[in-house]
């Protein structure tokens, strides 16, 4: 009986988190297309519902009623597993994101490591999809994305070490609380820029969308997918983008803290501040997609290994020396 009540209350909490996340993923797709259109002086989706808000819903319905085609030469089990893995991994990482000091599903000791681990598992959905399709373009896309995501994970890891040096804890709520007086975006601004660019590469967003570069690889690892399975890849991708924005706002923009600790601002609940910060970062993501041309693959690798990695490693040494010299190292 006791276990049952635990299971029910936890399921309720999980649904309360996941349903808004899924709805906001659908909305964010609309926002992405809308911003993209406005930068290029187009209208974008504006027909379905007010301002075209229901466009994603209409798209999802269309995908649901389409036939799911499984290629006869594909490896069927892995082919079906791939979008499921992408979607699941994109959703389970939301468990540790703190929406306020108490509103967090799992307040674990190693929250930031959990986020990093789950985001590094995200590559498997893409590799599995690309390999199981048993076709040239998806395979090339999968190989590209494996190399790309492993490379940029390294610099994201080093950037996380920078933040951890200033916090002294792996708990996400501790990371947020450490920024009460000063958001980390100010002292660690170069790291914030590198994190943002690495997040673009980690989520296969333009200008680093080489795994699905439509000019050379048709649609990369998604080429053989259709119907709801394609839509799941798509949802997983956008949920991952949102997650990277959430990670950026927790690590650098103070998470659920209000920008100024004054009366009208500090009564607004933390969840709203976090959502506003995520939205801000997402709008930057969408703008980058609209303005920057796609990178060449060797330039992408050079940027990751020869520029970002040495730069972030040097910054670790700098941060550690600074904290040590001025005796600011966190103690707990």
């Amino acid at each position: 009986m006791e276990y049952l009540s635990i299971i029910f209350s936890e399921t309720y909490k999980i649904l309360f988190l996941l349903v808004p996340v899924l709805i906001s993923v659908a909305m964010i797709v609309w926002l992405d297309r809308r911003i993209w259109a406005f930068v290029q002086k187009r209208q974008g989706p504006n027909v379905v519902g007010p301002f075209g808000l229901l466009q994603s819903l209409a798209d999802a319905l269309k995908y649901m009623f389409k036939e799911v085609i499984i290629p006869s030469s594909s490896n069927k089990v892995i082919f079906i597993l791939a979008p499921i893995v992408t979607m699941t991994l994109a959703l389970i990482s939301w468990a540790v994101i703190p929406f306020s000091a108490t509103q967090v599903l799992a307040d674990i000791n190693v929250g930031i490591l959990y986020l990093f681990a789950v985001s590094s598992l995200g590559v498997y959905g893409i590799i599995m999809g690309g390999w199981a399709s048993n076709s040239k373009y998806p395979f090339l896309g999968a190989i590209r994305s494996a190399a790309q995501m492993v490379s940029y994970e390294v610099s994201i890891g080093v950037i996380i070490i920078n933040v951890l040096l200033c916090v002294g804890s792996l708990n996400l709520n501790d990371i947020v609380m450490a920024q009460e007086s000063l958001w980390f975006v100010i002292p660690l601004f170069p790291m914030f820029v590198i994190f943002f660019i690495s997040a673009l590469a980690e989520t296969n967003r333009p200008p680093f969308d080489l795994p699905e570069a439509e000019a050379e690889l048709v649609a990369g690892y998604q080429t053989e997918y259709s119907g709801m399975m394609y839509a799941m890849f798509w949802l997983g991708e956008y949920a991952n983008i949102l997650l990277m924005c959430a990670m950026g706002s927790v690590l650098f923009l103070g998470g659920w803290l209000s920008p100024i600790d004054l009366f009208p601002f500090n009564v607004i609940p933390g969840a709203i501040w976090l959502i506003l910060k995520i939205l801000f970062l997402f709008i930057l993501f969408a703008l980058v997609k609209a303005i920057v041309p796609r990178y060449r693959y060797d330039q992408l690798m050079r940027l990751g290994w020869k520029i970002f990695l040495p730069l972030s490693l040097t910054w670790v040494v700098l941060t550690a020396s600074f904290l040590f010299y001025f005796n600011l190292l966190p103690t707990n």
């Binding site: 674990i108 000791n109 190693v110 990093f116 681990a117 590094s120 598992l121 590559v123 590799i127 492993v150």
Partner: peptide, 19 residues
């Protein structure tokens, strides 16, 4: 041993197994 578990995920699953 949550630290070891996470490091195992990051290093072995996230990097070594991908390669």
């Amino acid at each position: 041993a949550e630290f070891l578990g996470m490091i195992m995920l990051i290093i072995y699953v996230g990097a070594v197994a991908v390669l």
